[in-house]
Design a protein around this nucleic acid. Sequence first.
DNA 1: GTGGTCTAGACCACG
DNA 2: GTGGTCTAGACCACC
Lengths: 121, 121, 121, 121
Amino acid sequence: MADFDPNIPIYFQIINAIKQKIVAGLIKPGERLPSVREYAEELSVNPNTVQRAYQELEREGITETKRGMGSFITENESLIPSIRKEMAKSLTRTFIKGMTALSFTKQEILQELANQLEESK
Amino acid sequence: MADFDPNIPIYFQIINAIKQKIVAGLIKPGERLPSVREYAEELSVNPNTVQRAYQELEREGITETKRGMGSFITENESLIPSIRKEMAKSLTRTFIKGMTALSFTKQEILQELANQLEESK
Amino acid sequence: MADFDPNIPIYFQIINAIKQKIVAGLIKPGERLPSVREYAEELSVNPNTVQRAYQELEREGITETKRGMGSFITENESLIPSIRKEMAKSLTRTFIKGMTALSFTKQEILQELANQLEESK
Amino acid sequence: MADFDPNIPIYFQIINAIKQKIVAGLIKPGERLPSVREYAEELSVNPNTVQRAYQELEREGITETKRGMGSFITENESLIPSIRKEMAKSLTRTFIKGMTALSFTKQEILQELANQLEESK
DNA sequence: GTGGTCTAGACCACG
DNA sequence: GTGGTCTAGACCACC
């Protein structure tokens, strides 16, 4: 089901995939994530890698994990919007950084985005 | 002589600096870049690091290396803008894809970009 | 029926609850503890977890298990206070050692403890 | 040089050891920590374990690590006192928790500490 | 040589 | 069965 961009740490891509699923409503607060081993197998990845992703998610307060029980999405009203905002900010920052490195001006960045948004209409 | 952001690979920052100079017309097609050693000293950086940057530039088709002569900006005038355009397109596509996955509308995407461009002013 | 702190192993909280009841005289030496199944149901907890707690209590010499009869608080009246004292001593020694390594003076150690005891009031 | 308490994660003990060394002035801000491999060998521990400790230290802002260069103690005026405070708090919390579990009252905890401080005079 | 990530596989704590 | 830690050893990115 998944193939990973070899330039980005797998654990990081797992984190983002889960965050996206939460934002999209595919996983709901309170719900349990697949077990480390289960998910590792599904993704054809080492359990340690999934473990690391889950750990990071917990550190960010997105999940709570209970020994012997599994990891659960935090039940928190503001969770989803805050993840959405954070991811949007990160995406935008990356985009701006990349474009700036190509010495695009702010005007040109906006222009390029507008163009491509049109195209994909 | 130059300050580097410690969070970004130095070689990458060197690449960008050179690209910017090219786009800005400070270095012209056909012109020779400083030697690896020269440049490394100027930047107080390990020669390997400059070497790596030059290598990458060549891989991207932006420069050509002639044995014993040094690295030269590619003569093909149209090559550089076309590379730039391609990279911009790719960056933008990635950005749009990510934001769409977070169910942002086109309006919101533009808005978010505009906001963050303002902030980083 | 009981609320558990999700950050502390449940079996550990059960142990402490029992110890406290003993010290408080709510359970007397020689008395029988509830059966594992009974207690597990009362606490809405996995029987294994209660089992684990009982095991640990026995290991500490606080209870004695008789096959087919259940777990009993040890008859030796003086045993419990002596265990308690030993554990307290050990805890205190560890604490002092750690604080001393941070070059706290005796005064400061007492102060820090007093402060934090206040806070958690 | 080191042997580890088997009940506490090794990476955690490494973190604490380094923090203590910083507080004690044995390692100074700006100074470089041993490389992951070096330290791993010295401690007879797997490099991954040291790596994890270093990573955590960086996450806490205590070190900064530069690829290909090593990990360095953060140069920050308030670093040492803040570590000292944090560790003291943690030690004290652990102590209180343990004593409370043995159903010591606040008075008794203070008493026990005072006694043992006297003894070790 | 240095840190960062990953796999493979093991053992333990917990429920 | 589930998460947490650890070892052994590999490969890559960076300096």
